[in-house]
Amino acid sequence: MYKILEVKELAANIYLMEVEAKRIAKRCEPGQFIIVRTDEEGERIPLTICDYDREKGTVTIVFQTVGAGTVRMAELKAGDCFHDFVGPLGCPSEFVHESLEELKKKSILFVAGGVGTAPVYPQVKWLKEKGIEADVIVGAKTKDLLILEKEMSEVAGNLYVTTDDGSYGRSGMVTQTIKDLVEEGKHYDVCVAIGPMIMMKFVCKMTEELGIPTVVSLNPIMVDGTGMCGACRVTVDGEVKFACVDGPEFDGHKVDFDQAMKRQQMYKTAEGRAVLKEKEGSTHHGGCGNCG
């Protein structure tokens, strides 16, 4: 069992949890993820690692309630335990293996969308600890959904916040800010974008135009997360890759986003059905139009 030490609601339906997981805390690196299972009946949910404390033996995750599984996760309090918590899975971000000397020469831009801000954080923090300050764009739908602003501002070189509705910071999509920054004379050698699939797709379109190599962290459907099933397969540069072992980070300009987005929809109705069942219990007997 894996004890939850702290729970924070960062924004409406977005939660942060610090979890005791000694083996993972000892070995994890930025870019990797874990799989969590709330209880014996629960499904396996993949989540990118948001922070870790090697000495305390803890790993921090951030999640948004989107389906029955995450709704149940959000009901847990500090002191409760997860039934299963496995990792670190996937490959660390490429820069973890690069020489510091080379890395210091580079100008890096991070683009975070929504709850994707959480997995961006440990990467920016890791760089900061090595004396490298990266620029960060954080995009949220609206001011209330903005998370980790303070934490991010402490580790980022420059932090640019943008909201779709203009309720805070700059107004509009993150892609506009990328364009603006480059037009203002900023130069970036590499861009790392993490967020909803659709956002990463459009960031990649933009950076391709601007000639900035871009890394994305994909979030396809997963089951085991160790390479044994291929549920998370994606096409990158015409080749089939398993995001859980070959990724989750890939060259964004080579990812087939349209296919990845279609695959992500696979259980949409099943997931929706599970949420309804959770909410309405035995009184739910369909009728919403989505259920069989």
Binding site: V223, M228, G230, A231, R233, V234, T235, V240, Q259, K262
Partner: peptide, 16 residues
Amino acid sequence: GEQANGVFSANEYLTR
């Protein structure tokens, strides 16, 4: 067409 929705490895199908 192998990446179409509804194509599974037997491992995935059976694991589920």
